[in-house]
Amino acid sequence: MADGADYAADRDQSGSTTVDLSELRRRNTPEPVTFKRRELDRILQVYSRMVAEGNCRDYAIDHLRDKAVFAAFRRTSEVPLYRIEKDPSRARKQGAFAIISAAGVVLKRGHELEIVLKYFDKPPRLVR
């Protein structure tokens, strides 16, 4: 049988098992999904451009067990204009990254964040 440290449990003289619940929960609880530093840098570049254009004023980041969410708000009290989500469970299917509108419509989805964030790039205009 493996030692007690592997199972966060110890046997006392009577043969009963003592389990350290905090250690067991820590081992059984998956780490939340997070944005990597380069991903977050690129998202914040897009967000800062939206702030400079006057479209956004606030943002929120949420790291959940199943996905990471960056939400951009026009005002703090409103629903987010856009949500940029990273959902690893969709990585092999439609792609881990998605841009979702305030109405819940998926605007763009893909495997690479750079390509997905091109949704926010404005098309070139003819200057006369």
Rank of each mutant, 00 (worst) to 15 (best):
R109S: 13
R27C: 01
R38K: 12
V19E: 08
L40M: 15
R49M: 12
V19W: 05
S101Y: 05
N28T: 13
R65Q: 11
C56P: 08
I100D: 02
R27V: 02
R42M: 14
G104S: 09
Y82N: 00
L117I: 03
E78W: 10
R74H: 10
K122S: 11
S101G: 14
E39M: 01
K86C: 10
L107A: 00
D58I: 00
T34S: 11
R26H: 08
A103W: 02
L117D: 06
H111D: 07
D62W: 06
L40V: 03
P80G: 01
E114T: 13
K93H: 14
L107R: 00
I99C: 02
P32L: 08
A60D: 13
H111Y: 06
S22I: 08
V51T: 10
P88K: 01
K93A: 14
P123M: 09
G54H: 05
L81P: 06
D66N: 12
I99F: 03
A98V: 05
A71Y: 00
Y119S: 03
P80F: 00
Q45W: 06
A71C: 03
G95L: 05
K36H: 09
I43M: 08
P80C: 02
V46W: 01
E39G: 02
Y119D: 04
V51F: 04
I84S: 13
I84E: 09
P124F: 07
C56K: 09
R27Y: 00
A72Y: 00
E112T: 05
N28D: 09
A71M: 06
H111Q: 09
R92K: 14
E114P: 08
I84V: 13
L64E: 09
E31W: 01
I115H: 13
V19K: 06
P88A: 01
V79T: 14
V51I: 09
A71S: 15
L107V: 02
R42H: 13
A91W: 05
R125G: 11
K67R: 15
L40E: 10
E112A: 10
F70E: 04
C56A: 13
A71P: 02
P124M: 05
L81H: 05
I100W: 02
S89Q: 09
P123G: 11
F97C: 04
Y59I: 03
K118W: 06
F97T: 02
R65N: 13
T29N: 03
S101P: 04
L117R: 05
M50F: 06
R38L: 13
T34N: 12
I84Y: 04
L126Y: 09
R49A: 15
S77A: 07
D58W: 03
E78N: 09
A91H: 12
I100H: 01
Y82H: 01
P123S: 12
A96N: 07
R25L: 15
A71E: 09
V46P: 02
A98Q: 15
R25P: 04
D41R: 03
I84L: 12
P123A: 15
E114M: 08
A102N: 08
K108L: 06
E78M: 06
S22E: 12
V79P: 11
L81T: 10
R65M: 12
L24E: 14
R42L: 15
F73E: 05
A98D: 03
A102V: 10
S48C: 01
T76E: 12
E112F: 05
F35R: 07
D58S: 08
L64F: 11
S22R: 14
